[in-house]
């Protein structure tokens, strides 16, 4: 079907015609003929498909006219095996790379913010390949909340050590470690900023995917 032409003009086997004319390929025919494939049969059959050009509203996967009846039924959408395999292969590498950007922020471009965003992007990638709901079940809420809260607490704690030692807030030289300036900064970047950014970005992603609560438009995916 040409995207610019009204559906049905150029594809006679699909659109809402009487079942006697279109034969077995009819979409949305009488329920008695189609059997289990017509979950949305009666309602969808009454709606004109209309113009499906630029910017038209999604009208449902039961109107994929180029798929035959057999292909359409029972397979609404399956995750792509190719994408899943590629993400499986790429995700460990990218996760390691995000950690590298975080840990090596002192010697090359990058730091906690960028590294945390990359670690979050790994989870986003997995969620797009394997489905958001299964990723949400795999990643527990307590991990995300723990990372976010722990990051803020570690950052504030490192700052308060300087205050407790008689210096100023975030004065790293009072930390009881060798090379306190360098490793204090690394600690703030690695244990403070990176976990906050990563967990909050992942959390925002899941929150926006779930949508507002108490809302009938909330899809249960």
């Amino acid at each position: 079907m040409s995207r610019d032409a009204p559906a049905g003009d150029d594809d006679p086997a699909t659109e809402n015609g009487p079942a006697t004319e279109n034969g077995p390929a009819t979409e949305n025919g009488p329920a008695t003929e189609n059997g289990p494939a017509t979950e949305n049969g009666p309602t969808a059959a009454d709606e004109p498909t209309g113009h499906r050009g630029f910017g038209t509203e999604y009208s449902g996967h039961e109107e994929r006219p180029h798929l035959s009846e057999v292909e359409r039924q029972g397979t609404p959408y399956t995750e792509s095996q190719v994408i899943m395999t590629t993400v499986k292969a790429v995700a460990p590498f990218v996760f390691t790379y995000g950690l590298f950007i975080t840990f090596h922020g002192g010697g090359s471009p990058g730091g906690g913010f960028q590294g945390g965003a990359i670690v979050a992007a790994v989870v986003l990638m997995i969620a797009f390949a394997f489905g958001i709901e299964s990723t949400r079940e795999w990643l527990s809420n307590s991990v995300l909340v723990g990372l976010a809260v722990g990051g803020v607490l570690v950052f504030a704690g490192i700052g308060l050590v300087g205050l407790a030692g008689g210096g100023t807030f975030l004065d790293y030289s009072f930390l009881p470690i060798p090379e306190p300036m360098k490793y204090g900064m690394e600690g703030v970047e690695i244990l403070g900023i990176a976990p906050i950014v990563a967990s909050v970005l992942i959390g925002l992603f899941f929150l926006l995917a779930a949508g507002p609560a108490d809302d009938e438009t909330e899809v249960s995916e």
Partner: peptide, 11 residues
């Protein structure tokens, strides 16, 4: 964002 979406958990 949690407040606006009236949710209590991230994931």
């Amino acid at each position: 964002t949690m407040l606006v979406l009236r949710r209590e958990v991230f994931a």
